[in-house]
Design a protein around this nucleic acid. Structure first.
Lengths: 164, 164
DNA sequence: TTATATGCAAACTGTTTGCACGTAG
DNA sequence: CTACGTGCAAACAGTTTGCATATAA
């Protein structure tokens, strides 16, 4: 997390306060620090990581408050959650006569979280420039196409799951 | 799940039994049906979905058994889990002066699950052929590069998290 | 016969909720 | 002053584990 450099994203902090006001959210110390921790971090921290980081300054910050804020800030568009698919594990049969095994691509429904295979020969050829991989040892390049599946498009008023 | 067609993946079933034997796993009714459910399904079911599906035939199958089998089958390479990042939510600051907002790409460490942004102009131009999207309303095309981050490459013997 | 698998219940982890109190506006 | 936010503890969902019993090999 933002342990190293004292990165001060002043600009976004003002915009942040403005956006809170615009949406009727009070600007509290906790809220500001949670957002600041997020804005300062280069990776995409979990709620617990944010909690640990902000706690160094606000020792009685509760984890529940972190969650409540992440959700509130998500609603006003100041935060987004990187991991649409974190609610449960998903499995597939591997190898064998199933004709699988290649690093295949995916079609993900952002509403019901359904995942379908996306066989696209064009995508299979994708490579990433080593100058961009920040020292990672690359194992697979996978394309994830996010959208709304036919079922969820139909029943827009009663989608199969989760947050509006 | 595989409710519709009586898809019988005979071939993979034999290969499955062989692979179990090769790795000293007993071939039980439960194990075969769990794998069969997985092999027959077009999407990537969760443990609960598999449980519900197999339960129609084996009514006292326990959910714990499903989990134990998924893990055992993963170890012998007969099953793989589609969703590396399902263990916890990850967040990021959105919009504002952060210069974000574009559907950006990602570098994911398969070992410690860390997620970094991957700004690659080339990838931004990717489009998916409508003939492949199975009726989805496409919202974003995102490239996910999976690999091992520098830290985890170094401490290969003591990675920062999870399953070997 | 014996190593492995099963089912149950209890434990654990990440997340959410209810409520009394506190604080921003 | 009043609506909204906070912290705590309890509730929840998904997953894992321990153990007595059952079954494959």
């Amino acid at each position: 997390m933002g342990r190293r450099k004292r990165a001060r994203p002043r600009l976004s902090e003002e915009a942040f306060v403005a956006r809170c006001r615009a949406h009727g959210l009070a600007v509290t110390e906790q809220r500001r620090r949670i957002f600041a921790a997020l804005a300062a971090s280069r990776d995409h921290p979990s709620a617990e990581q944010i909690h640990r980081a902000v706690r160094e300054r606000l020792p009685n910050l509760s984890l529940a408050t972190v969650y409540k804020n992440l959700e509130a800030l998500r609603r006003i568009g100041a935060v987004s959650d990187v991991n649409t698919l974190h609610d449960q594990g998903r499995y597939e049969a591997a190898l064998l006569a199933t004709g699988k095994g290649e690093p295949h691509h995916r079609l993900v429904c952002v509403s019901c979280k359904r995942i379908l295979d996306l066989p696209d020969k064009g995508f299979d050829a994708l490579r990433v420039s080593p100058s961009l991989t920040q020292g990672f040892e690359v194992r697979a390049v996978r394309v994830q196409v996010e959208g709304v599946c036919p079922q969820c498009r139909r029943k827009r008023r009663s989608p199969r799951r989760r947050k509006p």
